[in-house]
């Protein structure tokens, strides 16, 4: 099967769905690019080139460049979604949600419930997150935890190209508001991706590797970091079960609990900040629902509680590394309930 990058997988998803359904449109800043310029139209194609070339096939009526006004762009997409279109609103960086949060939080997310189930809002906001590009505090945050906290929003966090395509097609066909988070550092990661359209249901975790000693739950780019750690730990006979939840809302609690019931140990790896984050959310859920199975405390490996720094030395230290994950796993392997109460 052909290997494709996340970038290509995402583009295939958008193109296939735009061909399939004339109501699917792309709205965003520079999704085509070049409007009102002296050079070529359509060469920009979004911050990561995902929508590059689409304007040639679908025209500027369906690949819509907007001014750099995120409230109007996301709000417009919400309004269009409530009135018959299936917009994919491209928000270059999730950090920009700061200027348009209301359009998701108070508008799009609320329609279905607030209007008594009589409205559907098939809106996808596709955005980019994550550190690693030396882009510093305003272009590197994760923020998926903020949206996971909002009822009425589904949060999709693909870690590989196969999932990216299937989850994006699912998102476009979904009748609820979906925020689709791509980590900027893994756009070129390749995987076997079918040429056809396919969907992956939300709330179905991927068991990346099976193991018996420790469960690791990791999100987005951290799935790869955790997998590196697991490979290294395997050499020392420590068997890791790695779970990629794929979506943080809905969350596949069942798969996580089942795994912890088998291993009795849990490490959560989350590039977000530590307070009120996904790691804490999963830890709380497991502590409540699988306490009986835990042989040791849950360890959370997260970024520190600081803005994302600029200097490479600082940023590298900020992002959870495979070494840190390994350390956490080795630590959790040495801990037990007795040791905790004794210490």
């Amino acid at each position: 099967m052909p290997k494709k990058s996340i970038r290509i997988a995402l583009q295939e998803a958008v193109v296939l769905e735009m061909r399939r359904d004339p109501n699917v449109i792309v709205i965003g800043e520079d999704v085509a690019g070049g409007a009102g310029c002296s050079g070529d139209r359509g060469t920009y194609g979004g911050a990561m080139g995902v929508t590059k070339g689409l304007i040639e096939e679908f025209g500027d009526e369906r690949v819509i460049d907007t001014p750099i006004t995120e409230s109007a762009l996301v709000g417009m997409a919400a309004g269009a979604a409530a009135t018959g279109l299936r917009p994919i609103a491209e928000l270059m960086f999730v950090d920009f949600m700061g200027v348009c949060f209301d359009q998701v939080l108070n508008q799009a997310a609320k329609f279905r419930y607030m209007f008594g189930g009589k409205a559907t809002t098939p809106l996808v906001v596709r955005t980019m997150m994550g550190a690693g590009f030396r882009a510093a505090a305003q272009h590197s945050q994760m923020l998926y935890n903020l949206f996971t906290a909002v009822p009425g929003v589904k949060c999709v966090i693909p870690s590989n190209a196969y999932d990216a395509k299937g989850l994006l097609i699912q998102a476009i066909r979904d009748d609820d508001v979906v925020i689709f988070f791509n980590h900027k550092a893994i756009y070129d990661f390749e995987d076997e991706v079918p040429d056809e359209a396919y969907t992956i249901p939300f709330g179905e975790a991927n068991i990346v590797r099976e193991g018996e000693d420790v469960t690791i739950v990791a999100f987005s780019r951290m799935v790869h970091t955790a997998n590196d750690a697991a490979k290294s730990l395997e050499k020392d006979g420590i068997s890791v079960e790695l779970i990629d939840p794929r979506t943080s809302s809905p969350l596949d609690e069942e798969s996580i609990i089942e795994s912890v019931e088998n291993t009795g140990r849990l490490v959560i790896v989350d590039e977000g900040t530590p307070r009120c984050g996904l790691a804490g959310d999963v830890a709380g859920m497991v502590a409540e629902k699988a306490f009986h199975a835990l042989k040791a405390p849950i360890i959370q490996v997260t970024a520190p509680h600081t803005p994302v720094p600029f200097s490479p030395v600082l940023e590298d230290a900020y992002i959870p590394s495979a070494a840190k994950v390994e350390e956490a796993v080795r630590k959790v392997m040495t801990m037990s309930r007795d040791a905790v109460s004794a210490s």
Binding site: E196, Y198, I207
Partner: peptide, 16 residues
């Protein structure tokens, strides 16, 4: 196995 299940699901998810 996990891979067998995943393989079948991958097939079943394809449109059509």
């Amino acid at each position: 196995s996990r891979d067998m299940v995943n393989g079948v699901l991958r097939y079943k998810r394809i449109d059509g």
